[in-house]
Amino acid sequence: MTIHATECLLRMHDQHHELEDYQSGVPRWCTGCGDNAILAAVQRLCRDEDLRPEKTMFVSGIGCSSRFPHYMKTYGFHGIHGRALPVAEGIKMARPDLNVFVNTGDGDCCSIGAAHWIHAIRYNMNMTVMLHDNQIYGLTKKQASPTSPRGTKSNTTPGGSYLEAMQPLTVTLGVQNVSFVAQAVDWIPEVLYDIISKAFKHKGFSFVRIIQRCPEWLPNTFEPWMQDPLRTLLLTHENGLTLSPNLSKVYKTQERHDPMNINRAREIASLQDPIPVGILYNNPNVPCYEDIHNIGQQRSTRYIKAGLEAEFDKFTIWPQAADGKIQPGA
């Protein structure tokens, strides 16, 4: 069967996607919430990469950020608190053909789901993980989170939170098999987009911590950094981010950082002021779990039957199997 050129063009047009092909519903986040910026960047990425909506998955846990999949016109999985990562791993293992994204918050990832986070880094499955870190529990109305700076006043810490904040970047960079770590801030949308795009293109577990504002519960936390661009450290490298001339003019605190240099990445990760923004680590050579441990070949009925009969033979005591290789009770 031949296809006419016009039909080809029509199909290409059909398969080309616009922004609205990824937009679903009106986000119910607060005005000024950093989640909105992340959503805009991700929808733009989907369009620019022309991702097929039916082959694209957004997986989340519970929290403000985890509403994310509802606003994407793709497949979405809005599961339970802390468990976005293992759900996403199961999906990826079953269906390596899907583009898998995970949206998780500082409570979801760094507190209730912390065990999964550590191990997800180790598995290094090919997925893009966005940690929406606003340093506070939002949906449950202002409780301190593991990433709240010490002294954060909240409903569970009225006198100020007691502990030093957990640093998600240093934790991630401390785990064996880490392959991609980046940090973005919601108020520099251009860099946010570039980082998510690099994360998507990395094959492996791409971890992007996005520092985001919570206008409702911590409205002024990042004001000083927004007021003074010099307090943001932009990481640049030909294998990482390259900045537009305009941005370079504004954000003059810069460091040329090779994303393969894990030792320097770890040092940068522990910086809190200035806030580092960019790609801290990117190692394309770490094997993905699903590539080294997977279902294997397509299994036809005949194939399964042959495998099963061989197993039955092993255990058959009467009559003895033809090849004599039988091991009952062994």
Binding site: G79, P86, V87, G90, I91, K92, A94
Partner: peptide, 8 residues
């Protein structure tokens, strides 16, 4: 939850 993801 891994099994749930794979099943889904």
């Amino acid at each position: 939850t891994f099994a749930i993801g794979a099943s889904y």
